[in-house]
């Protein structure tokens, strides 16, 4: 076999190029590895609120404030409980003094006495961040300081938030506010620091009536997941297209 000088050089170069290819470039990834790289997870945290079980005691609000260092005596709060009182004249009276932190033990709503005989129905609605599938707040954050984790939780990077308030404006649920001392956007995290350790959220743990539950939608055996799959549940403000992930049992059309 003859080999000219030109051929030798050509082949040497080819050989060198092939040899320099890192082995990792040819590595075959397992489906699980691919899943991990593109950000899929076998957990999707969702929340279930049973309105029929809530008595408006406000323990959840108290527990949340203490657990998450939200100043206790200011109006802003990560979770709150609203009271709806519908009277015979068709009016809906709604209030949430201090987010319902201290419970509801007064007949007064916005300075007006509601005569118990005129009430046709009344109920409490606990609210919190909906950790939407398509969160408007994440979309509008100019610096990417608010983001969605693989498990679906929407969080805020307190070290990167510039405090412009665009996310607060974009949230249709009023779930966000400025933290009074940290001066950055603040919101419910589903107690991410607790649930990722296998604990329940502070509000779920504090609720004496089991009105609040947290679960994994991707786990078919999870009781919350089973309820959402098999029972009739509702969500808030569907029309904004953010696909909220807090589900409600016994939701009334009057709930705002």
């Amino acid at each position: 076999m003859s080999c000219s000088r030109r051929d030798l050089l050509k082949n040497t170069l080819k050989g060198a190029a092939v040899a320099s290819l890192p082995l990792s470039a040819l590595k075959v990834l397992s489906p699980a590895e691919v899943k991990a790289t593109i950000g899929d997870s076998d957990t999707r945290w969702v929340f279930l609120v049973d309105i029929q079980k809530c008595v408006g005691c406000g323990f959840c609000v108290k527990a949340c404030k203490i657990e998450n260092d939200v100043p206790y005596d200011v109006g802003v709060t990560r979770t709150w409980v609203e009271r709806y009182v519908v009277t015979k004249d068709g009016n809906t009276n709604i209030d949430t003094p201090l987010g319902g932190r201290d419970g509801y033990n007064s007949d007064m709503i916005h300075g007006e006495h509601i005569d118990p005989d005129t009430i046709t129905k009344a109920f409490f609605v606990p609210k919190l961040c909906n950790h939407c599938k398509k969160p408007a707040c994440v979309q509008v954050c100019p610096v990417g300081a608010t983001y969605q984790t693989k498990e679906g939780c929407v969080l805020v990077d307190r070290k990167w938030c510039i405090g412009c308030g665009y996310c607060i404006m974009a949230c249709p649920f009023g779930a966000r506010f400025f933290h009074p001392t940290l001066k950055v956007a603040e919101k419910c995290t589903f107690c991410y620091h607790r649930i990722s350790k296998g604990l329940k959220t502070a509000c779920v743990q504090a609720c004496p009536f089991g009105a609040r539950q947290i679960g994994n939608l991707k786990d078919e055996k999870d009781p919350v997941s089973q309820t959402i799959m098999t029972k009739r549940v509702g969500i808030l403000k569907d029309e904004y297209g953010t696909q909220p992930q807090v589900y409600y049992i016994g939701l009334d059309e009057r709930v705002r």
């Binding site: 994440v138 979309q139 509008v140 954050c141 100019p142 610096v143 990417g144 300081a145 990167w160 938030c161 510039i162 405090g163 412009c164 308030g165 665009y166 400025f178 001066k183 950055v184």
Partner: peptide, 27 residues
């Protein structure tokens, strides 16, 4: 904008990590 920001010193973050789905990011 600088007057309004709760964290005025971080305003420049918009240039460092612009999040282009936000209408403010391109500002």
């Amino acid at each position: 904008l600088q007057f309004h920001l709760q964290q005025p010193l971080r305003g420049v973050n918009v240039m460092f990590t612009p999040h282009f789905t936000s209408a403010i990011a391109a500002f």
